[in-house]
Computed example of a mutant assay.
Amino acid sequence: MKLNIVYKREKEWFVGHIQEYPDYESQGKTIDELKGNLIEIYSDIQKGLVPDAEPFQLLEVAV
């Protein structure tokens, strides 16, 4: 399985979300901490612990 993580640096933190679930944001002091936090969120979603989680769809458009 491959997850796409979108993130940015905000001062001392890395803040991001899984591309398909932008409503569920997390942060970490390092990229690895952020990645671990987001994998945990994804795991909770897959287990049904976040019942209202609906993935966003990706549409690629050539311009």
Rank of each mutant, 00 (worst) to 15 (best):
K8A: 06
Y21S: 08
K2H: 01
E10A: 07
N37V: 09
E25G: 05
L59Y: 08
R9Y: 00
E20R: 15
E40T: 02
V6H: 05
Y24D: 08
G28W: 03
D32E: 06
K8L: 08
Y24P: 11
H17W: 04
V50P: 09
P51T: 00
L34H: 01
L3E: 14
Y7P: 02
I39S: 05
D32C: 02
Y42S: 10
Y7A: 07
V63T: 11
W13H: 07
G48R: 11
P22F: 08
K2N: 06
N37L: 14
Q19P: 00
H17L: 01
E12A: 14
G48S: 11
R9H: 04
K35D: 03
L58E: 08
L38E: 10
E54C: 06
I41V: 15
L49Q: 10
V15Q: 11
V15K: 06
P55M: 13
Y42W: 13
E10W: 07
N4E: 13
D52N: 14
P51E: 09
E54A: 08
E25A: 12
Y24L: 15
L58H: 00
L59A: 10
I31F: 05
A53G: 08
A62V: 02
D32N: 09
L49K: 09
V6C: 03
L3V: 09
G28L: 09
F56M: 09
D44Y: 14
Q46Y: 00
D32Q: 07
Y24E: 12
N37Y: 09
E60K: 03
K11S: 15
E20P: 07
M1C: 00
I39P: 04
G16T: 06
G48E: 13
E20N: 11
Y21D: 11
E12C: 03
L49F: 09
V63C: 00
H17P: 01
E60N: 02
E20W: 08
K35N: 02
L3H: 07
L38I: 14
Q57I: 13
E60P: 02
L38W: 04
I39Q: 13
E33D: 08
D44A: 15
M1W: 00
L38K: 04
Y21V: 01
Q57M: 12
V61N: 03
